[in-house]
């Protein structure tokens, strides 16, 4: 029983952390159809900016928020100068965002060096549940993730802008007739996705080693979260996808080893791509 409860708690932590890392990708992919291969580099950038903020003695929370905004701004520039010309050619956006990854990773190495950087856990300690201890900081992150996803959901389903954006996914012309500035909306969505990536990078930084390649760890997993969850299902899809990808890895690892667990997850993702390209639980 306690084992089951602890597995459940672990799975929740994994699911929500993965959801946080994947959310920026899900937004950009789901709403404007761009596969952002630069997502990993944006996470890394967020972590480095947070580290830099702490070096300047800016408080942690403020550093993370600033990192989000800086990465979002970089994303906006990238969109404005390059990506916006290629919205109709998915391959080009894929290649260009990959190039963004290459160039950014190199720039990070040049600007910040390649030593491991440390972002100190700002909320150390753990919450003792008697049979199990859960880390305070992880819990806070998970609460925050749930909050972000729910509030995005609110904007999406309960405000007029949200309704227009949903209309835009269905039919661009109709949305522009409704008075939506399509190119501006795309820009804002892209920027918001990058902002979320930067924010997520800053938030996971205290749990990981900050190094130029840290984003890679989450990049591929994030893709599969989005695929398994279903494109366009940015809210429930991200949670479900994270649950399946993260949970599957945890559960398979219980019975075999970690490598097999990772292989199983990737294999599963390929199968999902084929049999339910719209995501496992979505109807369409």
């Amino acid at each position: 029983m306690e084992l089951a409860a602890s597995v459940l708690l672990d799975t929740t932590l994994i699911t929500l952390t993965l959801a946080l890392a994947a959310f920026g990708l899900a937004i950009i992919y789901g709403l404007i159809g761009v596969i952002n291969m630069g997502h990993g580099a944006m996470l890394t950038l967020g972590a480095y900016f947070t580290w830099a903020g702490l070096q300047l003695e800016i408080p942690f929370v403020l550093s993370v928020i600033l990192s989000g905004f800086i990465v979002g701004f970089i994303g906006l520039l990238f969109e404005h100068w390059i990506i916006k010309r290629f919205y109709n050619s998915p391959y080009e956006t894929l290649l260009l965002t990959w190039a963004f990854f290459l160039v950014t990773t190199e720039l990070i190495k040049i600007v910040f060096g390649s030593d491991f950087r440390t972002v100190v856990n700002p909320y150390p300690g753990s919450i003792d549940l008697g049979f199990y201890k859960i880390p305070t900081y992880r819990t806070l992150i998970c609460v925050f993730t749930a909050f972000v996803i729910l509030s995005t959901g609110f904007v999406f389903f309960r405000t007029s802008t949200g309704i227009k954006i949903r209309a835009m996914i269905q039919n661009r012309e109709m949305a522009s007739l409704l008075g939506l500035n399509i190119s501006l909306t795309y820009k804002i969505i892209f920027g918001f996705g990058c902002f979320m990536a930067g924010l997520a990078g800053g938030l996971v930084a205290p749990m990981l080693s900050v190094s130029p390649y840290m984003g890679d760890m989450y990049l591929v997993r994030s893709f599969f979260v989005v695929i398994v969850g279903g494109i366009g299902q940015i809210l429930s899809g991200t949670i479900i996808g994270s649950f399946v990808i993260g949970g599957l890895e945890t559960i398979v690892a219980l019975f075999s080893d970690q490598v097999i667990a990772q292989v199983a997850v990737f294999f599963f993702a390929i199968v999902i791509l084929r049999i339910r390209p719209q995501g496992i639980f979505s109807e369409k």
Binding site: I35, L94, V220, F223, I227, A269, I270, L273, R274
Partner: peptide
């Protein structure tokens, strides 16, 4: 299954 071209890219990545 007529998987989208961009999905195919991700599948090869996983492969």
């Amino acid at each position: 299954a007529k998987v989208k071209a961009t999905y195919f890219v991700l599948a090869t990545l996983a492969l």
